[in-house]
Write a protein that binds this DNA or RNA. Structure first.
Length: 774
DNA sequence: TTAGTTCGGGTTTTT
DNA sequence: CCCGAACTAA
């Protein structure tokens, strides 16, 4: 077991003390995954049966990679037998096996966020409630929070505080929606994401023999990213670990970024209470990042009040100082980043995969993508609209789900008239109403109780045809292999034909996506995973797998690409060069976090996570204006920038009297022209932020201030209307040029100007202080 | 019933 | 800006 020698003493202690409860508090980049990997490898080499190890990870990809590493260490494929995966996928598997105990079909459907939102929408409508008040997203969050805290509809009604919250908010009927929502899920044989954990708790609570079975089965429990577990998950772990208490949780309170999803840092603090004689291991040496990055990250996280004291340090090089780059607009921010990556790549002969661009919201990826495409830099976006959320994929999957579980209402509604079969809204409405009346599922109304439907005979025939088709699929569920049945369904429903007929580029790509899905199913059918015990996987096995896939789980054949993702998605990853973009007030930190200290602190932890992804170099960027809701907004730099201890960071110079000089920071300004970007440790920057604290109100007055500033400084410069195509102008940096085009409306007029020295540039008139030459 | 259009409203992060 | 709901015409 010489592999253990590569660990430092704290890591090694954490890896080899396998008995009893232990908690590993692991600073960013401190080799947490290594400890977890080695600990499991060590267990197996000591003779523990892999089937008796349960390891809960944050993504399925993390699980897959860890299994691979363990296999390499122990030199056998035994590792594949470990129960390793996300909470959701592991317990979905267990629920499948135990489903009938809680009166669910073993083929229960898993509703994703969209499905459950649609269901809520129809419930609100059916109950005749105002959907402005009972917004589906709001209702969904409220119910999700309840479920994550194991509050049943009944407990919800009896909870005075919750009920009065709803009352005050003008939503007294929320609890009724919750009741109905659960009822409908049950009737549809479906669970939402939260149910997978909730129902597991019910199962372990109401069936002692089941609890005992799994307590005995799982002799060793490991939980990664413990800081991101919610109460529901906490309780599952506590129950399963109660017998052997061989529980190891690993986490870092400073990286807790899923509070919005019910994650509770208290779980880390409670550990002490639940297991008083636990072992605590602190991993504080960072192996990932340079001294500058570690120092910067530490100086930021110190600003949080709620935290466990930790002293993360590194013996790595000093490294490069953190850059802050200001840009005029979101598009120019993208151009800057793309140009900068291009340059860094050439200077140091680096791979694309050394770079990562991190942002707060998915919508920010667009300007980055466009700029990268312009320079032909290959990139890959993680997250956003994932493959499995695309319409055509969801449509086909809905057929599969309906085949496995005909009561699945959301799937039924999705496909009953796609491709068009003449079963329209009216018919569907009639079925729903009657189904609610008789307390039956829609499917039952279309089969057993079809006579009771008040529809004309033509429609009845159409319904009967649909039912016959679906029944024929269901009949083949057990006999046919997943891949064969999947293809059969795609063809005989007419869905494939429909997409094939569409020759638009989008249609083409939709068709390709379907092919890709079918290929994926084929691959799945041929994989022979231990959980199938040698039997061939069916379509419903595939569905379980697919419902819980994360986008991060997607593999890419060619992985030498720049990575683009949200900071949330970057958790656990590392890159030599990291660009954190959009560092603006109201974006990062998010506008919605500004009212609560706890939420602002979560944003700060998010920033901490972003910084600590980097090994060598961090570049922070922000834009002075950004398109949001389709219109231009002015932005202030994020408070997080100035929270970094100034010795680790280079701030841009801000010349207050000449805002247009920010052109110095534009990509073309910096590109090639060496000293173009002049930064100093910005005292101006500081001064500005001080004034911000005085107006401690919201964003609005600040933005107004910024806008009104502009005209007062534009005496000699071009104002709207004073320039036409052909006008000769002069720019402080680019020299003489000629206007070749004008677009946009005042005050956002954009001029395309040709400069002999640098070529064509797009300039916003109100920023670029152009002087008219003739 | 369908397809095509307009209109209004909403946008954090994710299993 | 992008989506879905509502409306309109065939």
């Amino acid at each position: 077991m010489d592999y253990l020698e590569s660990l430092n003493s704290a890591q090694k202690e954490a890896a080899v003390n396998t008995e009893g409860p232990s908690m590993v508090i692991a600073g960013a980049g401190s080799g947490k995954t290594r400890v977890l990997t080695y600990r499991i490898a060590y267990l197996i080499q000591k003779g523990v049966d892999p089937f008796r190890i349960l390891a809960l990870t944050f993504t399925n990809k993390a699980a897959r990679e860890m299994k691979e590493r363990i296999s390499n260490i122990i030199g056998s494929s035994e590792a594949r037998n470990i129960w390793m995966g996300t909470f959701h996928s592991i317990f979905a598997r267990i629920l499948r096996m135990e489903a009938e105990k809680i009166h669910y079909p073993s083929n229960f459907s898993i509703y994703d966020t969209q499905d459950s939102r649609n269901l809520l929408k129809s419930i609100v409508k059916e109950m005749g409630l105002d959907d402005k008040l009972y917004k589906p997203a709001f209702v969904q969050n409220r119910i999700s929070a309840a479920k994550n805290n194991l509050i049943s509809p009944k407990a919800y009604r009896e909870h005075a505080e919750i009920m009065s919250d709803d009352e005050v908010g003008g939503r007294p009927k929320l609890v009724e929606i919750y009741y109905e929502y659960n009822k409908r899920l049950f009737k549809a044989g479906a669970m939402d994401f939260d149910d997978l954990l909730y129902k597991t708790n019910v199962l372990l609570r109401d069936f002692p023999e089941v609890l005992h079975k799994y307590q005995h089965k799982f002799r060793y429990l490991l939980v990664d990213e413990y800081q991101d577990t919610n109460f529901s998950q906490y309780l599952i772990v506590k129950k399963l670990a109660a017998l052997n208490e061989n529980l190891c949780v690993v986490g870092d309170d400073a990286q807790s970024i899923y509070g919005f999803r019910g994650a509770n840092i208290q779980n880390i603090l409670n550990f002490k209470k639940d297991y008083p004689d636990y072992n605590l291991y602190k991993l504080e040496q960072n192996y990932r990042s340079s001294k500058n990055i570690v120092g910067a990250a530490n100086s930021v996280i110190e600003k949080n009040r709620d935290r466990i004291k930790k002293d993360v340090w590194t013996s790595n090089d000093e490294g490069e100082i953190i850059r802050v780059v200001r840009n005029l607009s979101d598009n120019e921010e993208g151009l800057f980043v793309a140009n900068d990556i291009f340059q860094e790549k050439n200077n140091a002969q680096l791979d694309n995969k050394s770079f990562s661009i991190l942002y707060r919201t998915n919508s920010q990826s667009r300007s980055m993508e466009e700029a990268l495409r312009k320079l032909n830099i290959p990139y890959r976006i993680y997250g956003g609209l994932s493959f499995y959320q695309r319409k055509e994929i969801k449509d086909l999957l809905a057929y599969y789900r309906l085949t496995a579980n005909p009561n699945d209402e959301e799937s039924l509604k999705r496909v009953i008239n796609y491709p068009a079969r003449g079963i329209g809204k009216t018919t569907l409405e009639k079925i729903t109403i009657k189904a609610n009346e008789l307390d039956r599922s829609m499917w039952e109304m279309m089969t057993t109780y079809r006579d009771q439907l008040d529809v004309n005979s033509g429609t009845k025939t159409k319904l009967a045809n649909f039912v016959t088709m679906m029944k024929s699929f269901s009949a083949q569920l057990q006999s046919e292999e997943a891949a064969a049945l999947a293809e059969h369904i795609a063809k005989s429903t007419g869905l494939l034909r429909e997409l094939y007929a569409d020759k638009t580029p989008e249609g083409l790509s939709r068709f390709e996506n379907i092919q890709e899905l079918l290929n994926g199913i084929k691959e799945f059918t041929e994989s022979n995973r231990p959980e199938f015990d040698g039997r061939k996987p069916t379509l419903s096995d595939f569905l379980l797998d697919v419902a819980l896939l994360t986008d991060a789980d997607q593999n890419d054949d060619d992985d030498n690409k720049v990575s683009l993702m949200t900071i949330h998605a970057s958790k656990g990853l590392e890159f030599p060069y990291v660009y954190i973009v959009g560092l603006e007030e109201n974006l990062f930190p998010s506008q919605l976090s500004l009212n609560e200290r706890s939420e602002l602190e979560e944003e700060r932890r998010l920033f901490y996570v972003a910084l600590t992804r980097a090994e060598k170099k961090v570049t922070l960027t922000y834009a002075m204006s950004r398109y949001r809701y389709g219109s231009l907004n002015y932005c202030e730099p994020s408070r997080f920038i100035e929270e970094i201890d100034t010795k680790y960071v280079d701030l841009p110079e801000v010349e207050e009297r000449r805002p247009a000089s920010s052109f110095d920071d534009t990509p073309w300004g910096g590109l090639g022209s060496g000293g173009g970007n002049s930064y100093s440790r910005g005292s101006n920057f500081k001064r500005k932020s001080a004034s911000r604290k005085e107006t401690s109100g919201g964003a609005v007055p600040r933005n107004l201030k910024r806008v009104s500033q502009v005209p007062t400084t534009s005496r000699k410069t071009i104002v709207s209307g004073s320039v036409v195509v052909g006008t000769k102008v002069s720019h402080a940096k680019f020299g003489m040029g000629k206007v070749v085009n004008l677009e946009g409306e005042s005050p956002n007029e954009k001029a395309t100007v040709f400069f002999p020295s640098v070529g064509q540039k797009q300039l916003l008139l109100k920023f670029a202080k152009l002087e008219i030459v003739e």
